[in-house]
């Protein structure tokens, strides 16, 4: 069988190029805000992943002949007091930031969805129990809750992720619960109940699918927020501890030399801001795309 139609004009139907081409036509990518977000996030992500093979100094490598150097081709973000390359350290810090952001968003999303759905759907004592605990957690200003928790659990990436998540999970529970409550009284739930659909059916078919989009939006905001909180904790000396670089502790290191070498503190901060802006546009764009009113 040689049933192949050769058309010279059409692009190849398989291969990475075609897949990219097809993906670029996806409605998600035609949205201006999503495009802008990816324009910011993808280069940062690529650089972070490629950091080990890039021709730059390793993050922990010191060079006493090149201390506190102004940004140059060789040291894009300059160097610090021990001659370490700030750009390389920043990329290592971004790695931590992204890990924290992604972990916190996943943890908050998972626990928020499960507990919020249970509380909203079943009501009664379960709801009261969950919401009482949630209210107690919400009584702490979130940064202070995180500070309190790392003070008990110690520094390092795992306690930081845990502490930030614990401040976010109650907010996610509350959001999910309020969504479930408003969905529970909708007429399509009644319609399913008239044919004796099981509770499991109602939850998995009608309630949860309608809550996912707003929760994903909240999760991407939470990721941006977690990155900022991790940076703040590390800046205060309570998060990721040197010598391991994180965006917050690089800024902290540079604080002492602000007058002599302003780039040590300011440039990594720009990167944090860029990541946060990227995530913000991503969530904004996704929300607009998922909102039926915007069509």
């Amino acid at each position: 069988m040689t049933d192949i139609t050769l058309t010279t004009t059409s692009a190849p139907k398989t291969g990475p190029f075609a897949i990219l081409l097809a993906a670029s036509r996806h409605p998600l990518l035609s949205h201006a805000k999503v495009r802008l977000a990816l324009l910011i996030l993808i280069p940062i992500l690529v650089l972070t992943i490629l950091a080990p093979v890039l021709p730059i100094q390793k993050p922990l490598e010191t060079n006493l002949r090149a201390m506190m150097q102004f940004p140059s081709i060789e040291h894009v973000f300059g160097t610090d007091k021990m001659g370490r390359d700030i750009f390389s350290r920043t990329l290592a810090g971004v790695q931590i930031s992204l890990l924290v952001g992604f972990s916190v968003a996943s943890i908050a999303l998972t626990f928020g969805m499960v507990l919020g759905t249970l509380a909203g759907f079943y009501g009664g004592w379960l709801d009261r129990a969950i919401m009482t605990v949630v209210d107690i957690f919400l009584a702490f200003p979130s940064l202070l809750l995180a500070i309190g928790l790392v003070s008990v659990m110690g520094t390092g990436i795992v306690p930081v992720i845990f502490a930030i998540s614990l401040a976010d999970v109650p907010r996610f529970i509350r959001l999910q619960r309020s969504q479930v409550l408003s969905l529970r009284s909708r007429a399509f739930i009644d319609a399913a109940r008239t044919v004796d659909a099981s509770q499991y059916w109602l939850m998995t078919r009608h309630i949860v699918p309608n809550t996912i989009a707003p929760m994903l939006v909240a999760a991407s905001i939470a990721a941006a927020n977690a990155i900022l909180v991790e940076a703040s904790l590390s800046f205060l000396g309570l998060g990721i501890m040197p010598p391991q670089p994180s965006l917050g502790n690089i800024v902290r290191d540079g604080q002492t030399y602000l007058e002599q070498a302003w780039w040590i503190s300011t440039l990594p901060g720009v990167v944090i801001l860029l990541i946060a802006i990227g995530l913000h546009f991503l969530s904004d764009g996704v929300r607009e795309l998922l909102d039926p009113r915007s069509h």
């Binding site: 007058e259 300011t266 802006i277």
Partner: peptide, 22 residues
């Protein structure tokens, strides 16, 4: 408002300190 909201406040403080104090 969006940009300010997304700025880490410690960084904003350092930048202002750099400009207006130092």
């Amino acid at each position: 408002a969006m940009i300010i909201d997304l700025m880490p406040s410690f960084w904003m403080a350092l930048v202002l300190l750099l400009i207006f104090s130092l």
